[in-house]
Design a protein around this nucleic acid. Structure first.
Lengths: 338, 338
DNA sequence: GTCCAAATGTACAGCGCTGTAAAGAAGTTT
DNA sequence: AAACTTCTTTACAGCGCTGTACATTTGGAC
């Protein structure tokens, strides 16, 4: 079954290709009678435009790439959903690239992969540095997510992680907590994200007049909840006392809850727990998880706003947008002191 | 910064376009000296081939579409990851389409979206019926996932849901459980998947000589854990007694665990729980969740095997592949009778 | 009726690449 | 040295669509 082409329709309808094209695109100035005739031919042959050819002719692909570290991490899968929905609302299709936090894959995202395939790229880097990103600037518009790299030359959207961490700590302090654990630093993999959250944590403690205690900043070997659970249990076993945990991530918080439960500590009575990202996980845990909530929908729409402007030709230097965050209060760190 | 084209490189190197193309494609018969000269020109200009143009010329896009109901459902995000990884290993790029279980979106997947955009489609339908799918057959190869629709004309990969449900129930029976709840049927949204799992559940009960009790088959208003939790609690409140729950899905199991906990029942001592899909959720719950585990990696590779054969021109009627499943035993329904 | 602007339709050159056919160069065999 | 091979390289026609420039028709205004 050979594909039906524009010219086939044109011949059947007895008009020029361009007229068929005009009908397909709903161009205003086509006489109703002709339009009808052409439409009939289109229907009869079951014509579907070849998007690849259209692209080559127009130079537009109607697709944007979304490059994220892991598609099955709850935060990224939820963010992907927001971006995919927003993009589809605006008439774009999304290609999702998974970098697995791999340097080579991240470079590939920017280099090979922009080869006319997409009109723009939304990229959440983990490994690449600001300078590398700045250098690899090509003509394909790019918007960065996260705070791993913030080259001044490139548009960028993130939440204020320092402020958000501060808000998390303030919430715990308001609950009367004084010994707040930060969970955690990943050994050999200290990301900028973690650093900024840790910074906000410290600022809020200083602001509250609570002495900093390095012992309270826990290190874990990797990003799994199991490791977090083990780290919490080890800390307890070693005699560390604390009454709250601010987690870098909801998955860390899941681990913290497990560890606390295994150690026989009650959440939130003895230890309050705050997660981060407000993913669906928060309502799956026991108790349900209070979590710092980046406004993912806003993040998606802001990123697309910036990207669309660039795609329309906006030049200028990098714009930086902060997206609001909030704290969604659930059982693990309730509003009323527990 | 205008794009560098093949012809620009050709002019700089003083050769024909085709020779440059041959160098780009590592064609064997190019004299070493020329190859080097061309390569130098490529590097100097920073040439990247335009994939859209290549596509139009070759008719191959190197992309496959993956259409799933929800990208942020744990099962689908994990499956997507498997498929994306396997596809990238084979040199394909993946476009993920989210249908949100919407009939219109599902049709769109097959109709508009195959317009030369991708070489093949992997589609997990929810709403579309076998006949509709069969009818919409175009020339773009298609492989179906799940069991919502199984037209004989189309390639298809799934696990044996009936057998898997049977295995789940057998595991519970081996644990000494006799009153096993099936959670659950979603009101107004009885999918084929649910039906088949329910069927296996019944078969295993009959096989074990346990009387069927319609009361044990619970109905929930939607797919959220919260509803499942409520349904379990309501059942308990109404006096239903049971010692195990076979869940349709890990998210349902999360809800079941919550409901049982709220009702003060111990898992697994009083009630054992088995989830389905073996997603990352299973290790996040308390207790950790025994779950029926479709072999996702195998599912991905089988789907791609079939799709690649079709893309290479295989005709023939629909092939149907069953992928193995197993049961991953964790705390909620341990191996040793608890 | 004439004239002009707006409405309607067409022809055709490209978008950047690859496949094909065929020419030219180099090496081998009679 | 002619006649073959085999190896290299090239020219050019598309892939299917859209933008541009232009031709034609229509409908009033004069």
């Amino acid at each position: 079954m050979a594909r039906v082409r524009l010219i086939d329709v044109a011949e059947l309808a007895g008009v020029s290709m361009k007229t068929v094209s005009n009908v397909v695109h709903n161009y205003v100035h086509v006489a109703p009678a002709l339009r009808q005739k052409v439409q009939a031919a289109i229907d009869e042959l079951g014509y579907k435009p070849n998007l690849t050819a259209r692209r080559l002719a127009t130079g537009k692909t109607g697709m944007i790439a979304l490059a994220i570290p892991e598609i099955d991490h709850p935060y990224f899968s939820e963010l992907s959903r927001c971006i995919a929905e927003e993009a589809s609302r605006r008439g774009y299709r999304v290609i999702i690239e998974q970098t697995l936090s791999d340097t080579v894959a991240e470079h590939a995202v920017l280099q090979d992969r922009e080869a006319g395939l997409v009109d723009g790229v939304i990229f959440h880097p983990v490994r690449m540095q600001a300078l590398e990103l700045a250098r690899s600037q090509r003509d394909t518009p790019l918007v960065l997510l996260g705070e791993a790299a913030v080259p001044v030359t490139t548009d960028h959207v993130m939440i204020d992680n320092v402020a958000a961490a501060r808000d998390g700590v303030r919430h715990l302090v308001a609950l009367g907590r004084q010994r707040i654990v930060f969970l955690g630093i990943v050994a050999d993999d200290i990301t900028v994200t973690t650093t900024r959250r840790l910074l906000g944590y410290q600022e809020a403690l200083v602001e509250a007049g609570i002495p900093l205690d390095p012992e309270l900043v826990l290190t874990v070997p990797d990003f799994t909840p199991e490791s977090c659970s083990a780290a919490i249990q080890a800390a307890i076993a070693s005699g560390l006392t604390f009454d709250a945990v601010l987690c870098r991530d909801d998955k860390f918080a899941v681990g913290a809850l497990q560890g606390l439960h295994r150690a026989g500590l009650d959440v939130p009575r003895e230890v309050a727990v705050v997660g981060w990202d407000d993913t669906a996980l928060t309502s799956f845990t026991r108790p349900t998880l209070t979590s710092i909530a980046p406004d993912k929908a806003r993040l998606a729409s802001t990123a697309l706003d910036l990207l669309e402007e660039r795609m329309r030709g906006h030049q200028g230097s990098g714009r930086h947008r902060l997206v609001p965050h909030s704290i969604t209060v659930r059982e693990s760190a309730p509003a009323i002191p527990g």
